[in-house]
């Protein structure tokens, strides 16, 4: 900016009127200060576990941060060992083999969340579909479309009502649990707890899209969480802004195989034993904890746009974005108000 009322050569006596020098100094100071303030780089670590890629990102430095991240991964591995139906020697295997088991600790808490989601969704989420999941083999190297009889028989052996309330499974009664629909979210919650207890102020634990943010980001801006566009793997359907949130998405694009042009995805409808055809392509759920978000995302996907929204609206602190096959976004009342949501421009 040139000084006003300039008279004579620049080297000579000049005249600047008003408080312009003050203003310039203030503005330059603000600009320089904002330029100098560097946002600390996050520490990011990834590991393959729980059948997906887990990423932990923390805004903290030094050995303590690295140790905290390592402890969080260890906690997640512990939960996977106790609850995965693919890892032998745990209670899930004992129940599948009819050896009986008394669920306790992590497994009991996960089971409790799973039952609660099953009851709330009238069985649209069911943690006893392990045999059906195995029959379809989606996500393995031997996916196939099972026969009607196989599906009917496996359905007959499933049902969340068969889970004893006490968590004590008697010997001789076989039940093929698949707690994957809750365990991943639960592990995310526990990892966040470990990080917080270790003094990490802010970060994200992300288990293949089931994720939880915590703390305040440097600069105090809200966390920005993208929601995957179910039709284009490279695009986002939109971006949510929030403080601490737990979020999970179920979609037909995540794991699937195709036979004669028909896509068979991994979210099975407990009513039919087949991949759910509810008119949805994805269901994203925000909840007070990630375990619940995980289970409700599956339930909402199976229920479809209307009944799915109804399920989510009825629960305190739960919001959702359901994207149907025709590209319509069905959102609960808190999306856009409680949680700002910037939708992808068509």
């Amino acid at each position: 900016m040139m000084p006003r009322n300039l008279s004579g050569p620049l080297a000579g006596r000049s005249r600047i009127s008003g408080k312009t020098p003050f203003l310039i100094l203030i503005v330059l100071t603000v600009i320089l200060a904002s330029g100098c303030r560097r946002t600390p780089e996050p520490v990011r670590e990834t590991r393959f576990m729980m059948g997906t890629l887990v990423e932990i990102l923390v805004y903290a430095q030094g050995e303590d941060a690295a140790n905290a991240v390592s402890r969080a991964f260890s906690r997640m591995a512990e939960i996977e060992k106790a609850t995965s139906c693919r890892i032998p020697g745990n209670d899930v295997e004992s129940v599948r083999e009819g050896e009986g088991a008394l669920f306790s600790g992590d497994a009991a808490r996960i089971l409790q969340t799973a039952i609660s989601a099953a009851v709330a969704s009238s069985g649209s989420f069911d943690p006893t579909l392990g045999e059906l999941v195995d029959l379809w083999g989606i996500g393995t190297d031997r996916p196939r479309v099972p026969g009607e009889v196989e599906i009917r028989d496996a359905l007959g052996r499933s049902g969340y009502q068969k889970i004893p309330e006490s968590g004590r499974f008697p010997p001789g009664e076989k039940l093929w649990l698949d707690l994957g629909g809750v365990a991943k979210g639960f592990a995310v919650d526990e990892a966040v707890k470990v990080l917080k207890d270790s003094g990490v102020g802010a970060g994200i634990v992300d288990a293949g899209g089931d994720l939880r943010t915590f703390g305040v980001k440097p600069g105090s801006s809200p966390w920005k969480v993208g929601v995957q566009d179910p039709d284009q793997s490279r695009e986002l359907a939109g971006i949510l802004e929030a403080g601490e949130i737990s979020i999970a998405t179920s979609g037909d694009y995540q794991r699937y195989f195709e036979v004669e042009g028909v896509r068979y995805h991994h979210i099975l409808d407990p009513a039919t034993g087949r991949p759910a055809r509810s008119g949805l392509k994805s269901a994203t759920v925000l909840a007070p904890d990630c375990a619940l978000a995980d289970a409700l995302a599956t339930a909402a996907f199976v229920l479809g746009p209307e009944r799915g929204l109804d399920l989510l609206e009825k629960r305190d602190g739960v919001e959702g974005i359901l994207i149907s096959e025709d590209g319509i976004y069905h959102t609960t009342s808190g999306i856009g108000t409680r949680f700002p949501f910037r939708k992808k421009q068509p």
């Binding site: 992300d206 920005k224 969480v225």
Partner: peptide
């Protein structure tokens, strides 16, 4: 195998 393009990102995370 995991591949991620590094640079200034639009979001902190993506729910997939």
């Amino acid at each position: 195998i995991y591949i991620r393009v590094e640079g200034r990102e639009q979001t902190d995370a993506v729910s997939r």
